[in-house]
Design a protein around this nucleic acid. Structure first.
Lengths: 133, 133
DNA sequence: CCGTATCCCTCCGGATACTG
DNA sequence: CAGTATCCGGAGGGATACGG
């Protein structure tokens, strides 16, 4: 982490910055955005290809997620007006750049998921101690 | 991003891994976790210190967030049974390690927030074109 | 001081059906 | 194929009041 940005106590009083950054974090945290970004990292995909790959996502949420990502300038939506219509989604430069920190986070999560899950198990066990000495 | 983990197409079929990783991403994405982790990066804080620093968080959400982080093994909760009671929260090793990728993401967000916001403005303008030629 | 409990309301997200 | 529209349940999250 760098000291010169939002992590320094000196500018934490600038709450506006935290709020704005939070809007980006919220997008990362929502249920499908990361999945979509990951799938598109290999190249552009059509709507139903995306839907098939992710598997358990509804059309509603997929289109909503894609619209959100498009709105944020992270993916492009290319319509080919043929019959049947064809729509391709791809990452923008910004989207590819986002892939770097998101990938780092994903790698951390992947590396530490066992630690987190065992911590959860321990915590839950310690707090359901209706049965103990 | 590394090729060897969850980002490789070869193991995307292992949906269980994605699901598990998603639980961690959800914690990052929730409204207060990142703020708390950031504040605790400088050292331990008491409940109301934390609450005051963040400012607009309710007790309910702060305690819920802290319990979640504690459950995941990211923060510790130290009770000093005095009168009045004193409770200190601090990052665990795992929490400090998480700070690295989270900081990277925060830095990305901070660096690109302008691009994202202008993309949003452009998108919104293009889609509220009830008034045009 | 440090929470928990309750109420209440909004938004997320799934299922289904329909349109271009 | 690529969505939109509608309905609906449930989780998220704020305000307030109360307990240890």
């Amino acid at each position: 982490m760098q000291e010169g940005t939002m992590t320094k106590p000196g500018n934490l009083h600038e709450t506006g910055g935290c709020q704005r950054v939070n809007t980006v974090l919220s997008r990362i945290g929502d249920k499908w955005s990361v999945q979509v970004i990951m799938r598109l990292s290999a190249g552009s995909l059509r709507f139903n290809e995306l839907k098939r790959e992710i598997g358990n996502v509804s059309q509603k949420m997929l289109s909503a997620t894609l619209r959100g990502l498009e709105r944020d300038g992270l993916v492009t939506r290319s319509v080919t007006p043929s019959v049947p219509p064809r729509v391709d989604y791809a990452l923008t430069d910004l989207g590819h750049q986002l892939l770097v920190p998101v990938g780092a986070l994903g790698d951390w999560a992947f590396a530490n998921i066992d630690a987190v899950e065992s911590a959860r198990a321990a915590f839950d066990a310690a707090h359901s101690d209706a049965a103990r000495a």
